[in-house]
Design a protein around this nucleic acid. Structure first.
Length: 121
DNA sequence: TGGGTGACCATAG
DNA sequence: ACTATGGCCACCC
């Protein structure tokens, strides 16, 4: 067991849970950005933390579609953190997302803004 | 205690 | 349009 693996602790549990919760709401064939999720949770969280949280998404029991989270450029910056470098692209293409050079082509159409699409009760 | 790091983002030149 | 820089927040050594 490598000691550099991300561990879910009492401290970050709620934070991770919030992130995963939003990510799971991303519809098929759509994608959003780290910053959008950060903004959804409150700008304070910081966009970089989202990616860090995603690193722990693999250990979650509930499925987390981490492949639907890209950077603001629509680029698949996190693909190297998947089991396979091509896993992220394959998953997106399987949902009908067009990708070229590790970048979503029709990102404008695919983009899903949680702050807009989500309604808070 | 403090400094380094990260699947990022916005701004300035 | 592209590069450089700072900010962001939680974690690790």
């Amino acid at each position: 067991m490598p000691n550099n693996s991300i561990k879910i602790t009492e401290k970050n549990k709620d934070y991770f849970d919030s992130v995963f919760q939003v990510v799971r709401l991303i519809p098929e064939g759509r994608a959003t950005s780290y910053g959008a999720i950060s903004n959804c949770l409150g700008t304070k969280s910081g966009a970089r933390m989202i990616g860090w949280a995603m690193n722990a998404s693999h250990s979650q029991k509930e499925y987390v579609p981490a492949h639907r989270v890209v950077n603001r450029n629509g680029m698949l910056t996190g693909k190297h953190h998947f089991p396979s470098p091509i896993a992220m692209q394959e998953a997106l293409e399987g949902e009908g997302v067009e990708i070229k050079d590790d970048k979503i082509q029709n990102y404008k159409q695919v983009y899903w803004d949680p702050t807009v699409e989500l309604t808070f009760d």
